[in-house]
Nucleic acid binder design. Structure first.
Lengths: 107, 107
DNA sequence: ACAATCGATAACCATGTGGTTATGGTTAAT
DNA sequence: ATTAACCATAACCACATGGTTATCGATTGT
């Protein structure tokens, strides 16, 4: 695959946008209204952030009446996983599994 | 740990900066001069990018005479690994290993 | 001693970005 | 039929960002 991960890195570089993504990951599908409430920014700001996440392939939307539900698209992180997996070889050849690295970093 | 990964995401979101990081990963320690040559941008631009990577904890520098050598600091990616590991639980509960997810995404 | 090289910094510029308020189009509620 | 709610878009603003050229201090080479 090896797709260009720039858009994904950019989308996740903003704390507000990452908070939206994390909330959708934890709590599942949410309306714009529900995402706006605890965010501390205006509804148009949330709409723009959601559009950014959508352009990066990280979320999908579903219209139902006057509401729009957003949910995480897990495949959107493929480029990120690929990038980290690919370059981890150069940093830590001694780790033959990414999982091992994760365990060590947790300590 | 669960440190704030914003600075790392930001640092890697720029293609020029990511190219520098990737080159340092592949080829090891490099001077600013060596990094500037194939980059397509000016030396001050490279210096600024290196400073950004350094602030994010992704590289370290070593002065030797009039040259400055930069190298990857592998621990700088800890927050990124942590973030991805933590949230991968919410996306794909059925994957009990991150490694499995990587394999599937490669197809 | 003098000249050249390396790399960081300053000053500047164009563009991008994250926020706002205002508004309009749909849909739901009264 | 009106009114209210939901969400996207437009217009705008302040600031960040990625680039440039000019320059300077420090080191190396002649």
């Amino acid at each position: 695959m090896r797709t260009e991960p720039t858009s994904v890195f950019k989308a996740l570089a903003d704390p507000t946008r990452r908070a939206i993504f994390e909330r959708l990951s934890r709590s599942g599908e949410q309306t714009v209204h529900a995402l706006t409430a605890p965010s501390g920014v205006s509804q148009p700001a949330i709409s723009k952030h959601l559009n950014g996440l959508k352009s990066a392939g990280l979320v999908r939307d579903r219209r139902h009446g006057r509401e729009t539900f957003y949910r995480v698209d897990p495949t959107g992180l493929a480029s990120l996983f690929n990038w980290m997996d690919y370059y981890s070889h150069f940093w830590h050849e001694r780790f033959d599994k990414l999982e091992d690295l994760l365990k060590r970093l947790d300590q």
